[in-house]
Design a protein around this nucleic acid. Structure first.
Lengths: 182, 182
DNA sequence: AGAAACATGTAAGGTGTTACATGATTCG
DNA sequence: CGAATCATGTAACACCTTACATGTTTCT
């Protein structure tokens, strides 16, 4: 049910339309919780039915602005203070790593190299994001900065791990200079 | 479709029944890719229909042993060598962190402390797993070791991050000894 | 004999993805 | 006026969770 809580959290900052919320998912929450357009609109309808939000204003082009109701705020607080139970873990890239042993060594190593490279790119991107704006100020900026830092540390960790993994794999030996290749 | 690939990968090692595969998910893949019983049985039927596996033997209690067919092996190789496209990211705990600014500071700090503590436990558990068996030998042990290492580094990173985050939060100042509380 | 482990399956309901469908308003 | 952006919604299909349902074999 976390899509609902993400929406409640965003609406706690300011009333917004489904379209506004969509853009927030694509930008600020892109590295935390993705949602599609049809999900957002559908969930907003259900949240209205459930009495968590209200349509507080209607604008041009059928725009509907949603506002948090007290019930919604209560639910948000409840969720934020409830300890998260561990979510079902599913990581496709780790699954691939787990089965790396089924590939010829050179192909397996190539996959690890790819992981390290992809993560280096990710670091560049996140560093750009870090430099792109001021992270002091309003509360959501502060916690946004926390999330970004986690992303940076996670990517650095993953890149280092991939390098370490390459060292563990057989076939790492450098052929001595001048050795004849078979 | 990764459940299917997980099953193909496990069957590449040795023919197994649905029940066997379930146990492998609960043990070796517990930190990589979770699956429920009804998912596994259902997917095995669909994989049989798709010609990826065969029921190679039947045993007591209706036991069916599945074996990889050449088509299945091909599909597994294809998947392993195809670069993974980034999966939709959804992290509930990060979502909670993102909205930490909506809580009073002391409650927000309590959440971060909880995260650090939970991760410390996780590290203990993974270290136990690391010590519990020999990780040299067959290919899947070697890559299993890689995955475990990733888990260990990830947990250490997360714990350190939580400590860092606590330092960033307002309200970190220690009241001087003997100071009067309001 | 009873408990634990082995073994498979179905059904209902929730959540998410992709594609389709439609139209209004603003800006150059 | 045409393109981009704003704006909302539906439908089909895939996937996952939880609970229900059933029966056998082995071990103590």
């Amino acid at each position: 049910m976390s899509l609902r809580h993400a929406l409640l959290g965003l609406l706690a900052e300011r009333p917004s339309s489904g379209y506004d919320l969509m853009k927030l998912f694509d930008t600020t929450l892109a590295n935390v919780w993705r949602a599609t357009q049809s999900q957002v609109y559908g969930e907003l309808t259900r949240m209205t039915d459930a009495g968590l939000v209200d349509v507080s204003a209607e604008g041009p082009r059928g725009r509907k602005e949603y506002t948090l109701r007290p019930e919604g705020r209560t639910e948000l607080q409840r969720w934020l203070t409830t300890p998260a139970q561990p979510q079902p873990l599913r990581s496709e890239w780790m699954l691939r790593v787990f089965f790396l042993g089924l590939l010829p060594t050179d192909q397996a190593r190539a996959q690890l190299v790819r992981i390290a490279e992809a993560e280096a790119e990710q670091i560049t991107e996140l560093e750009g994001l870090l430099a792109s704006r001021d992270w002091a100020g309003d509360p959501l900026s502060v916690s946004g900065r926390l999330v970004l830092e986690y992303g940076l540390r996670g990517s650095a960790m993953k890149r280092e791990w991939a390098r370490w993994a390459l060292e563990q794999m057989p076939g790492d030996r450098q052929p001595p200079a001048g050795a004849d290749a078979p």
